[in-house]
Simulated scan of single mutants.
Amino acid sequence: MDPFDNDRQVPSFWRRPAGMAVATAALIAGFYLLREHWGHVLGYWPYLLLLACPLMHLMHGHGHGGHARRRPESERTSQGRG
């Protein structure tokens, strides 16, 4: 038994040939779908842009510390007085 066999990782689905074929087919289908219905998409573009704002807040709202790392009020006031 080769000692390096345990270190090999199975590639993710998207790295396998079947995953790449699915991704390529999805991109082609999406292109043709968008091309045929561009007029409809263009009419809803402002609403889709406004919908993206809350979705971005939901997905990225916990980054950069968030509200969990705030100091209690007692610590903030006691440090200000010297």
Score class of each variant (00 low, 15 high):
7 D>C: 08
10 V>E: 06
42 L>H: 11
51 L>I: 06
76 R>K: 14
63 G>E: 15
34 L>Q: 03
59 M>A: 15
25 A>S: 08
79 Q>W: 04
16 R>A: 07
12 S>V: 05
1 M>T: 14
46 P>Y: 02
60 H>F: 15
5 D>Y: 06
40 H>W: 13
17 P>M: 03
29 A>P: 00
21 A>V: 01
48 L>T: 10
61 G>S: 02
2 D>M: 09
36 E>G: 11
71 R>F: 07
47 Y>I: 15
21 A>M: 04
39 G>Q: 15
5 D>P: 01
8 R>C: 00
47 Y>E: 15
11 P>L: 01
32 Y>R: 14
77 T>N: 08
28 I>T: 09
47 Y>P: 01
54 P>Q: 09
17 P>Y: 03
67 H>P: 13
78 S>A: 12
51 L>D: 11
77 T>A: 10
51 L>V: 03
13 F>A: 07
47 Y>K: 03
49 L>K: 02
57 H>K: 13
49 L>V: 09
26 A>C: 10
2 D>R: 11
33 L>H: 04
69 R>G: 13
72 P>M: 08
36 E>W: 10
73 E>F: 06
56 M>A: 13
63 G>T: 08
80 G>Y: 03
2 D>L: 10
28 I>C: 06
15 R>F: 08
37 H>V: 02
19 G>I: 00
69 R>M: 05
24 T>L: 04
81 R>L: 14
74 S>R: 14
6 N>K: 11
11 P>M: 01
20 M>S: 00
13 F>L: 03
27 L>R: 14
71 R>P: 07
73 E>D: 12
3 P>G: 05
38 W>K: 12
2 D>Q: 10
29 A>H: 00
75 E>W: 06
23 A>I: 07
25 A>V: 10
74 S>L: 12
7 D>T: 13
64 H>G: 02
75 E>Q: 13
69 R>H: 08
59 M>L: 14
36 E>Q: 12
55 L>V: 10
73 E>I: 11
19 G>L: 01
45 W>K: 01
1 M>R: 13
39 G>S: 03
32 Y>F: 15
40 H>P: 02
17 P>A: 05
81 R>S: 15
70 R>P: 00
69 R>E: 08
39 G>L: 11
19 G>H: 01
49 L>Q: 05
33 L>Y: 05
60 H>V: 02
12 S>Q: 06
31 F>Q: 08
64 H>M: 06
4 F>H: 12
27 L>T: 08
60 H>M: 11
48 L>W: 02
46 P>I: 08
58 L>C: 04
3 P>N: 07
35 R>P: 00
63 G>H: 10
44 Y>G: 13
73 E>N: 00
50 L>I: 10
12 S>C: 05
76 R>M: 11
79 Q>S: 10
30 G>H: 04
21 A>K: 05
56 M>P: 03
57 H>A: 15
